[in-house]
Computed example of a mutant assay.
Amino acid sequence: MQLISKLSLSLVTVSTLVLGGCQQFTQPQTPASPMVEAENQFHLQGKIGVRTPQQSGSAFFNWLQQQEQFDIELSGILGVGKTQISGQPGQVTLNSAKTGTIQAATAEELLQRATGWQAPISHIIDWVQARPATTQAKVAYDSQRRPTQFLEDGWTVDLSYNEQARLPNRLILKQTFESGQENRITMVIQNR
């Protein structure tokens, strides 16, 4: 039972932080497209799965982003195990019945404290909007000039699209270690 509790806490923490990063990097300038959502303003619903060498799990998410402020709700099947995450520059808060309230200055800091691993959590805001988070990213494109892969800060991010959509409906984030093991985060966006 204790192992299940630790696994649940780790999944909630990682999912929370993956979905709750705050913008911290200067964005490359890209032309505006009428089909693209307003920058850093979106509402996403879907499912997230996290797999590390030590554990794996999944949750449903509802993510509202308004510029640099966000509100995310994570839950299991039938809404069981709800976790609320909110953030703004300088403060990220996670609240659930299992953990109580946990706060940190950034999502990356909260992830490090809670799980011991480091990840560029704030980049996900850009990645779900089909753009790199930094100017150092290596980007691959499809025939429609949509990004299909980012190589950025030690992560490989594969993006998939529905038909002619300009924004991805699936992201797979992978961090591979020298041992061949990896951390993998899969996000399926069902509604935008």
Rank of each mutant, 00 (worst) to 15 (best):
Q2W: 14
N191Q: 14
A107S: 15
S58K: 01
L151R: 08
D158N: 14
N40Q: 15
K138D: 09
G57W: 04
L9G: 01
S75H: 03
N40F: 14
Q23F: 02
Q144V: 09
Q88L: 12
Q27M: 15
L94G: 04
R131G: 08
A130S: 06
E68C: 02
I48S: 04
F61T: 01
Q118G: 05
E182S: 14
I85N: 09
I124D: 08
Q66F: 02
G79S: 06
I185R: 08
V50F: 10
W127E: 09
I85Y: 12
K47R: 15
A165W: 13
E152N: 05
K174Q: 14
V50K: 01
R131T: 03
T115P: 09
T16V: 02
Q84F: 07
D142R: 09
F177Q: 14
Q175N: 12
S5A: 03
K6V: 10
I185S: 02
G79I: 03
S160Y: 03
R51G: 07
M1E: 14
F42M: 12
A105V: 13
T52C: 01
L64M: 05
F150K: 01
P34T: 05
P168E: 07
W127V: 02
E73V: 08
Q181N: 14
S96K: 00
G20F: 00
W117K: 12
L151W: 12
K47Q: 14
G180N: 00
Q136Y: 09
I4W: 11
A140Q: 15
N62T: 01
L111C: 10
T52D: 05
V50L: 03
L7A: 13
L110P: 03
G116K: 04
V139S: 10
I172W: 05
G154L: 01
N169T: 11
N191G: 10
I4H: 04
G20E: 02
S143V: 11
F25I: 13
Q103P: 06
F70M: 11
P53Q: 07
S15E: 07
L167Y: 11
C22I: 15
V157K: 05
G116N: 04
T99R: 04
W63R: 06
K174N: 13
I72W: 00
D142T: 00
P120T: 09
I77G: 03
W155Y: 04
Q67Y: 13
T186W: 07
T186P: 12
A119N: 04
I189H: 00
S10F: 07
R166Q: 13
Q84E: 05
L74V: 02
V14D: 00
L3I: 13
S56L: 12
W127N: 10
Q118Y: 12
I4D: 10
Q29Y: 14
K6L: 12
A38W: 05
R145Y: 08
S143P: 03
A32V: 13
S122L: 09
V157G: 02
Q23G: 11
K82M: 01
F177L: 11
D153Q: 13
N62R: 05
I172Q: 06
D153N: 08
V128M: 02
F177G: 05
R113T: 15
Q24A: 15
I85H: 04
S15N: 09
Q129V: 11
P168N: 04
T106M: 13
L17Q: 15
S10G: 11
P34H: 10
L11N: 06
V139R: 11
I124Y: 03
S33W: 11
L110F: 09
N62P: 07
L64V: 14
A114W: 02
L44M: 15
I189M: 07
Q118S: 07
P132N: 02
Q41C: 15
L64S: 10
A104V: 08
